[in-house]
C-alpha cells in the first residue's frame, strides 16, 4: 500500500519536474527562468527525499540536502546577481518561437519514452517511469540550449540537463555511489560559477551576453 502510493508520489514529482521544463521553455524573462530552475531543483530535492524515505537509503537524504543548497540557493543567487549586471532582461530574439518550441519538447518526451521502453521493465517497481522522464528532461535541456541565444538561458538549459540526470540517478537507481554524487555536485557548482564569470567578461567585452555576437571565429 505504502509502496504503491510512494510510486505514485514519485511519478507525480517527476512529472512536476517535467512540467517546469515546459515552463522554462515558454518563459522569456531571464530572471523568471532562473526562478523556475530553482523551483525545479526544489522538486528534485523533494523526489530525492521521497526515494530516500521509501527505499531506506539514507545517503539519498544527503543528495537531497546538497541539491537544496547548491541548486535551489547558491546557483540561482549567483545567476540573479549576474543578470542584474546585464543590460538585457528578456530574451528578445528566439531562434524558435514559443509554440513551436513547446511542440518540439512534446515530441522529445515521446521520443524519450520510446527510447527507454526496452529497458524500463528492468527498473525497480517503485520508480519505473522516472528514467524516461529523466531522459526527456535531459533532451529538453539540450533543446533549450540550442533554441536560445542568451548565455544565461544556455546555462539554465545546461543546469536543467543536470537536473534530469540527477532525477535519473536518484529515482531509477536510488542514487549513485556517494563519491560520484559529491563529485558531480562539485563539477556542476564550479561549472555554473565559471559560466557566471564568463558572462561578466562577455558583457564587458561585447557589451552583451547574446551569443549571436560570438561570430569572430569561423572558417
Amino acid at each position: 500500500m505504502l509502496s504503491e502510493m510512494g510510486s505514485q508520489l514519485i511519478d507525480l514529482c517527476s512529472a512536476l519536474l517535467l512540467l517546469t521544463c515546459f515552463a522554462i521553455v515558454a518563459q522569456r524573462r531571464l530572471a523568471a527562468c532562473v526562478d523556475l530552475f530553482a523551483l525545479q531543483s526544489a522538486f528534485l530535492a523533494g523526489t530525492a527525499v521521497l526515494v530516500g524515505f521509501l527505499t531506506d537509503n539514507h545517503h539519498v537524504y544527503v543528495t537531497a540536502a546538497m541539491t537544496g543548497l547548491v541548486k535551489v540557493i547558491i546557483i540561482p543567487v549567483v545567476l540573479k546577481k549576474v543578470i542584474q549586471r546585464l543590460n538585457v532582461k528578456r530574451e528578445l530574439v528566439m531562434n524558435v518561437n514559443v509554440p513551436v518550441a513547446l511542440l518540439v519538447c512534446g515530441t522529445l518526451v515521446i521520443l524519450a519514452f520510446f527510447i527507454t521502453r526496452p529497458i524500463i521493465p528492468l527498473g525497480h517497481v517503485l520508480t519505473r517511469d522516472s528514467l524516461a522522464i529523466a531522459l526527456a528532461i535531459v533532451l529538453i535541456g539540450l533543446f533549450t540550449m540550442i533554441a536560445r541565444q542568451k548565455a544565461v538561458t544556455q546555462l539554465v538549459g545546461f543546469l536543467v540537463m543536470e537536473n534530469g540526470l540527477f532525477l535519473g540517478a536518484t529515482a531509477a537507481t536510488h542514487g549513485m555511489p556517494f563519491v560520484v554524487e559529491l563529485g558531480v555536485f562539485f563539477d556542476v557548482l564550479v561549472a555554473a560559477l565559471i559560466a557566471g564569470i564568463y558572462m561578466n567578461r562577455l558583457q564587458d567585452a561585447f557589451d552583451s551576453v547574446d551569443t549571436s555576437h560570438l561570430t569572430g571565429l569561423k572558417e
Partner: peptide, 12 residues
C-alpha cells in the same frame, strides 16, 4: 552531461 547519462545507465 550526455556521457553521465550513459554512466547512470551502466549503473542501472
Amino acid at each position: 552531461s550526455l556521457a553521465l547519462f550513459g554512466v547512470v545507465l551502466v549503473y542501472y
